[in-house]
Computed example of a mutant assay.
Amino acid sequence: MSTVSPDMAAKIIDGKAIARSLTEQVGRDVAAFVERGNTLPGLAVVLVGNDPASEVYVKNKALQTHRAGMRSFMHMLPQSTSQAELLDLIADLNANSQIHGILVQLPLPAQIDPVVVTNAIVAHKDVDGLGEINAGRMALGIDGIVPCTPLGCLKLLQSVHTDMQGKHAVIIGASNLVGKPMAQLMLREGCTVSVGHIHTRDTRALAREGDILVVATGKHGLVRGDWIKPGATVIDVGITRVPTEHGKTRLVGDVAFEEALPVAGHITPVPGGVGPMTIACLLHNTLQAALLAQNVVSRPDQKV
């Protein structure tokens, strides 16, 4: 139980509500897109192996894709799938005009190089935004497909801040999936950006400088309450399942939530924060991919 007084607690950023609003907007935009005579957007999701958590995740993606009025194509491959076999499937999906977005669920089995697989997806269908072309476009400040999780984090921040110019954004975690693209997005917003990583000497001191603090390390409870600048906006990307004293499990983030509540100005919960936004942004990116495929110019509010 939290002991934080309601008038002292940070305001919770409701990722579920913001994701629901975005998904509904995507659904309306999909309907308008089809009414203009375009092909119904289609998303192909590829899962290699039988990891139960990944299976639940990709099935949820398929469900949300249908709810947004788009087609979903599921490809469930065995753990023993070779890299060559997976690349053959991607080549077929690249050539299929009914499929506008391709997502290969990570992690992949040890025999498959995720970098090779990601770069095999043509750039305009790379709805995860992780291929070299889209990553390069982001680094150069050129429009491209933005990785779903960082894009979701940005939209959560924009729900709190109408203008982030001049704010100090501190990102803890420098992965290609979240940390690096998040830094690029914050630079686009006019923030001063610092990135902490495994070799940072005093991560606590760095974190305390952040007007905006984005944490994506996969190490649950890493960021304590005294790591947070009073009034900062905290985006917790981490998600880990830990055991409880009753023999069950619960999901927790990289931020010690109860300690952060009386310090932060706004904070995302885990679950219910970044997670729903990642899927909503996947749907957003799939529509963007369909727009690219049809050579249709999107509305300004559909762009990052």
Rank of each mutant, 00 (worst) to 15 (best):
A31F: 03
L177F: 11
N295A: 15
V215T: 00
S194G: 14
S2F: 10
A216W: 01
I172N: 04
D14E: 14
T268P: 00
G210R: 00
V46R: 00
I99T: 10
V237Y: 00
C281F: 04
G131Y: 03
G221M: 08
A256Q: 10
Q64A: 05
L185I: 12
A232F: 00
V297M: 13
G273T: 02
K16D: 15
L213T: 01
V116H: 13
S5N: 13
L206R: 08
R28I: 07
A260Y: 00
G196D: 06
G129V: 07
M8Q: 12
T3Q: 10
A53I: 13
V146D: 06
R137C: 05
D226F: 12
V160T: 11
I145N: 04
V170W: 00
L154K: 02
G166T: 10
S54H: 03
L43K: 00
K59H: 15
N119R: 10
D128L: 10
H199V: 13
D113Q: 12
F73Y: 15
M74H: 02
V48P: 04
H197E: 08
H266F: 09
D211N: 06
K155D: 01
A110E: 14
Q25P: 05
L187E: 09
P114T: 14
Q64P: 00
L185A: 04
G238S: 01
I90F: 02
G273Y: 00
G238D: 00
L292R: 10
H197D: 13
T203L: 15
V45N: 01
I172M: 09
V297C: 06
G152P: 03
D113N: 15
V34I: 15
G15H: 05
I235C: 00
T278H: 06
V45M: 04
A216H: 02
P150E: 03
G275V: 01
V34W: 05
N50P: 06
E132F: 09
T3L: 13
N60C: 02
N94K: 06
G173T: 01
L261R: 02
Q184G: 05
L251T: 07
T249Y: 08
K155S: 06
A31Y: 05
L222N: 03
G210L: 03
G101E: 09
H246K: 13
T3W: 11
E55Q: 14
V252N: 09
I171S: 01
G253P: 05
A62K: 12
I212Q: 00
I90W: 02
G179N: 01
